[in-house]
Amino acid sequence: MKTNKSLLGSIVQNVLLVIYAVFALFPLIWMVILTFKPDAEIYTTTFVFHPTLNNYRVVLFETDYLRYLRDSLIVSAGAVAVSVLAGVPAAYALARYNFKKKEDIAFQILSFKFAPEILVVLPLFMIFQKLHIYDSYFGLIWVYQLISMPLLIWVVRGYFEDISVEIEHAAEVDGYSWYQIFFKMLLPLIKPGLVSAALLAFIFAWNSFTFPLILAGTNVQPITVAITKFLGTGSAHYGQLAVAATLSALPAIVFALCIQKHLVRGLSFGAVKG
């Protein structure tokens, strides 16, 4: 009796989940379908159409799409690299050392994420013009720190705080220098946090629209901004737009799947008294 009941329960559960999944994924599915539709059938809502790869051909070989993709990759990866290099030591300091206004500084860093980008983007534009870093990789990587750094520092700081300070002391007494301790003992322990924070930061940077729209646009064109070009003044090539959007969403999706694996914590537990 009981097993029947739980079987029925799990069927209902699964059906509900499938319905929700279809509902949630529908826009994405629709977008992918669009990429295979010829322009003429774009507006038909039936699922019967003449599939074509023409949109892909046009986007990949007849536009500068690959250049935009490269630009996105450079600024996002660059932004994350800078965040990791500067953010991990900062997180360590915030976790381990006691100094005046420590919590204020930590909060200040987090608060960068509070303000809407549009609020600061105009003054930034003026500053970038004056500093001659407008429309450059450097400029974008710099401004992207507003997006990636706070996230990274806050996640990694939590991981550092979870590691008992005695582990560092133990390694020190064992004869390791601080750098060895950091790379041999601490880095493996914060790795899950560091990787997931870095991937999240990468996704946020990748998806950023406002900053590159205002602060770049000719020399450097991340994909998010470039996509708008497919909405021409006279004709909108929705098929091509869909291809561009789908392709640019791919890295984010792949990374998101990677994070899932790394989000499993618990490695740092069990080392000290239980």
């Binding site: 005695e166 133990a170 004869g175």
Partner: peptide
């Protein structure tokens, strides 16, 4: 600490979890 040539057992054991 590294150069003092001591060995220490910590109250919370401080084993390297990985």
């Amino acid at each position: 600490a590294a150069h003092r040539d001591t060995a220490m057992v910590f109250e919370n054991y401080a084993l390297y979890p990985q």
